[in-house]
Amino acid sequence: KGCNCRRSGCLKNYCECYEAQIMCSSICKCIGCKNY
């Protein structure tokens, strides 16, 4: 399942991608994603 966080840059544990240690991709559609 994808993540669509808006404010944290996908760097907080409530973002599913970050919590699962998945990098930003087409699945993880965080706005302004900084989780490289």
Rank of each mutant, 00 (worst) to 15 (best):
C24Q: 10
Q21A: 09
Q21N: 09
C30P: 07
S26F: 01
C5E: 08
K34L: 13
R7L: 11
Y14T: 07
E19Q: 09
R7E: 15
K12W: 01
S8K: 09
N13V: 01
E19H: 08
K29I: 05
S8P: 11
G32Q: 04
S25E: 05
Y18T: 10
E19R: 08
C5H: 13
N13I: 04
Y18A: 11
C10Y: 03
Y18M: 13
Y14P: 14
C17Q: 07
K12G: 10
C30R: 03
C15T: 04
C33W: 03
C17Y: 01
K29Q: 14
E19V: 07
K12P: 10
C33G: 11
E19K: 09
C30A: 06
S8T: 06
C33R: 06
S25P: 02
L11D: 03
E16H: 03
C17K: 05
M23L: 03
I22E: 12
I27W: 01
G2M: 08
R7P: 09
Y14D: 14
I27P: 13
C5N: 03
I31P: 12
Q21G: 12
N4H: 07
K29L: 08
K34G: 15
Y14Q: 12
Y14H: 15
S26K: 12
C30M: 00
I31G: 14
R6M: 00
Y14I: 09
G2W: 01
I22K: 09
C28M: 04
E16R: 05
K12T: 07
I22A: 12
I27K: 14
N35T: 08
N35I: 13
K29W: 08
L11K: 11
Y14F: 05
C3P: 02
K29N: 13
Y36K: 05
R6V: 13
I31W: 09
N35W: 07
S25A: 10
Y36G: 14
S8W: 02
S26L: 02
C5S: 05
C15L: 01
Y36S: 11
N13E: 10
C17A: 04
I27V: 13
E19N: 04
G32V: 03
K34I: 02
N13R: 07
C30N: 01
G9A: 05
I27A: 14
S26Y: 15
K29G: 15
N35G: 14
L11F: 13
E19P: 06
G9M: 06
C10D: 09
Y36N: 12
L11P: 09
C10E: 12
C28R: 02
Y18S: 10
S8G: 12
M23C: 06
Q21D: 02
R6E: 14
C5Q: 05
G32E: 11
Y18W: 11
G2V: 07
C5M: 06
E16Q: 11
I27L: 09
C28V: 03
Y36R: 15
C10K: 05
Q21T: 10
Q21S: 11
G2Q: 08
E16W: 03
G9H: 11
N13A: 10
N35M: 00
N13K: 10
E19Y: 15
C17S: 04
C10H: 01
S25T: 08
K12V: 11
N35R: 11
S26P: 01
C28L: 01
C10Q: 07
C28G: 07
K1G: 02
R6C: 12
C3T: 05
S26Q: 13
Q21R: 13
A20V: 07
C15P: 06
C28T: 08
C30V: 04
C15R: 04
N35C: 04
C5D: 00
G9W: 00
G2C: 03
C10L: 04
I22S: 10
S8L: 09
Q21E: 14
L11H: 15
C33L: 07
G9V: 05
I31C: 11
I31S: 14
C10N: 04
I31Q: 13
C24T: 06
C33M: 08
E19S: 07
S25K: 07
A20W: 06
G32M: 01
N4P: 11
C15E: 10
R7N: 07
G2R: 03
K1E: 08
R7I: 05
S26A: 12
N13T: 06
E16F: 03
Q21P: 10
S26E: 15
I31A: 15
C28K: 04
C5V: 00
Y36D: 14
I31M: 13
K34M: 12
Y14G: 13
G9T: 07
K29R: 12
E16S: 02
I27Y: 03
M23R: 10
Y14C: 14
C24V: 03
G32T: 01
R7H: 10
S8Y: 02
L11S: 08
K34S: 13
C15V: 01
K29C: 11
G32S: 09
